[in-house]
Amino acid sequence: MYARRYKKNLKVCTMALVFSLLWLPSQAGGDTVRRAADCYIVTGYGVGYSVFCDQGTSPLVYRGPAAAASLGFEADWPLWRMSVEVDFVGGTYINRFQKKLNFNNIGGVLGLNASVMRRVSQSGRWSFWGGVELADFAGLRHNPSLNNSSTTFDNFALLNLCGRVEYTIGRWRFHAEAEVSPLAFSFRPGYAFIDNHSATNEADKLLLDNYKWQAGAFDFFSTDIGVSLELKGGNLLGLSYIWGMLTTGASSDNRLVEAAHLLVISFNFKLN
């Protein structure tokens, strides 16, 4: 019942945020002239490290190498920017206690997100953007050593607020962006790992019954600082440091904190 109520609230909040953005005062009247959008295929490849703590499985914090890839579509107008993107971040978590037992987890998070941003201010080379994003992150993790061999999954459905600052000088564009989720729904198990040894339809059902939706706030944070260079034909080559974190917050029983620090190279191919 609570999940249904929060889903309804999510819809209302989304609509309110989108409409409020539509009415934000434009600081650059000349840009209100209608213009065809610049459209891009957006790709990104990143490497870095991840930090992982799933208290339903272990109280220990694990760090390990991570890699990421993304593919999306972006349409830019002078006042508006819309994008749809699929991201994947994968990482392995290597036992910090080398003298202890193996905990060589491997996992990945698949994200699907759609965002709308509006330029809310411009001053010289500076421009300021604000917007909303709907995102869904589905995570799957496998631990070959815990409970014979174990697998778990979770899902986060998020409404994010985004803010972005850009500084353009010639063909170079520097940017800093932040996202937070004021409203989030996480689907997490009461018991984090299913023991594959006893995994039958009946056991899975018992364990999956313990998965539950939980409403919360600030389950997702992300920052992105970088620079992009406009190449011939309007294509963009970029380099960013991206940090992203998913968490169920500090108080939940089986608390999850999963963060990735990534250096990402992006290629945006202009379509028109």
Binding site: T57, P59, L60, K99, L101, F193, D195
Partner: peptide
């Protein structure tokens, strides 16, 4: 049916 956890000292 059994389930497991890791302990703070790395044991299971």
């Amino acid at each position: 049916l059994p389930k497991g956890r890791q302990l703070p000292n790395g044991w299971y």
